[in-house]
């Protein structure tokens, strides 16, 4: 093990890690927003729309993120939509995970007692107001831990962006390792960094879980 080599290239890996985290964070916001819209659409939109949305999400959930990334990166330019690697990666991550967060929101929304909807109707609260003031605040609160788990899962999927040439951590490591044939050092370091960030974020999520579980 060449510790000096690891030390010399550590800053570059950390730079890659920053990009990994950035892609995860932005992608996660996309997933949270899009997933919520999907969940609401599946409940309130006209049946054909809800049905179509359901199967699109099912399709996204049953096919690999890697191929979806290739699709976004190579196919869309043919339709005049050119995305940079990072943008394609973030949209891919967000879209893929929206299929998961939508299910989480759905279970949260279904967990709201029927009486809440009925009370809203009895007080003639408008549907829009009902969603934003009554249903979602309760539903989101109870699904925070589950949503948190997907943040960690997504973080671990981010190295896939390497395949569409986003210079995130694994890309950097692979590049540096390739020129010097120091695969052991570089990829082991990446592995350890992943474990550290995952375990740290698991601790945070568990903290949130405890905080919100009581409510």
């Amino acid at each position: 093990m060449d510790w000096g080599f690891i030390g010399d290239n550590f800053p570059a890996l950390i730079e890659g890690l920053q990009l990994t985290i950035l892609a995860t964070a932005v992608g996660y916001v996309v997933a949270l927003v899009l997933g919520l819209l999907v969940a609401i659409a599946r409940r309130s939109a006209p049946r054909p729309v809800a049905w179509t949305v359901h199967w699109i999400m099912e399709f996204i959930r049953c096919t690999p993120l890697l191929v979806q990334l290739f699709f976004l990166f190579y196919v869309l330019p043919g339709f005049g939509i050119s995305l940079g690697p990072l943008a394609a990666g973030i949209i891919g991550l967000g879209l893929h995970y929206a299929a998961y967060t939508a299910e989480v929101y759905r279970s949260g929304i279904e967990g709201i007692p029927k009486g809440q909807w009925e009370a809203g109707r009895a007080l003639s609260i408008s549907p829009g107001r009902m969603w934003t003031a009554v249903i979602l605040p309760q539903a989101i609160r109870r699904v925070i831990p589950a949503l948190g788990n997907y943040l960690i899962a997504m973080f671990k999927d981010t190295p896939l962006l390497f395949a569409i040439t986003v210079p995130e951590m694994l890309f950097k490591a692979n590049e540096l390792a390739g020129t010097n044939f120091k695969y052991l050092e570089m990829i082991s370091t990446v592995g350890v960094l992943f474990i550290i960030v995952s375990v740290l974020s698991a601790v945070v999520i568990r903290f949130l879980e405890r905080r919100y579980a009581a409510v």
Binding site: P159, L170, Y183
Partner: peptide
């Protein structure tokens, strides 16, 4: 569980394919 859930499978696979032969 913590270790193997923590490390991404892609990284694990790269490690096995590229790094392990060196060890």
């Amino acid at each position: 569980v913590e270790v193997f859930r923590g490390v991404a499978a892609l990284v694990l696979m790269f490690w096995m394919f590229y790094a392990m032969p060196l060890v």
